[in-house]
Write a protein that binds this DNA or RNA. Structure first.
Lengths: 105, 105
DNA sequence: TCTAGTTAGTTACTTTATGTAACTTAGTTT
DNA sequence: AAACTAAGTTACATAAAGTAACTAACTAGA
């Protein structure tokens, strides 16, 4: 007696998005390439978790890590095409938040 | 030197959605009202966490809990208007997953 | 040159969140 | 009475996040 199980592709998408910080990292990168410390301070995430997330997103093909051989070396993170393809999701969340989230500061 | 901080309403929306299981619970309830055990078995979540999530979503005004005084009592969970207002988000994720998630079973 | 500062992380340790499985309460079927 | 179902709860184990200090390689300042 199993209910029609949820689509595995959908579940996978949800798994990505419901990992803490992931959506915010992608959202920040929609603004363009950024460096580790920029992400860290704009999102307010610890170095450890940011490092984990970036590795994870890179491995999933959503984020690209570029080493720019300046001196000193600069490391830039940016979205891949797949990463950018999530923009509509983030925009829909943005819209929803404007209409339904109450400010309570 | 703080980057233009992320909109608090958006962050709040992300906080809701990036809590593990929350999006799946809402997604299931888009199909209509359901009982505790139905949700549990269709989502594959433990009773403890489902119970936590439902309380949380109720408190946030996304889910409604109705006690139907049959004998024995039946408890039905359903989305509020605010809950249903998240449908576009879930549909956008659904679309994305169909186009970008690879099946690897 | 010695000191302090920056970038991009990593490590060790603590706290919080989730998972597992057994238990409960009330009513129900056999 | 014995076993079952619904809707949870409890206690305990494991995993994920947070915190803060540390590192390596370079740089700017006194």
């Amino acid at each position: 007696m199993s209910q029609p199980t949820i689509c595995p592709k959908f579940e996978k998408a949800i798994t990505i998005l419901s990992q803490r910080w992931t959506a915010l990292v992608i959202y920040q990168l929609l603004q363009g390439k950024q460096r580790f410390n920029e992400l860290q301070s704009s999102i307010g995430i610890s170095g450890k978790v940011l490092s984990d997330r970036l590795k994870d997103l890179e491995q999933k093909g959503l984020v690209k890590r570029d080493v720019i051989p300046d001196t000193p070396v600069v490391i830039e993170y940016s979205l891949t095409e797949k990463g950018y393809s999530m923009e509509p999701i983030l925009r829909t969340i943005e819209d929803w938040s404007q209409n339904w989230v109450i400010n309570e500061d």
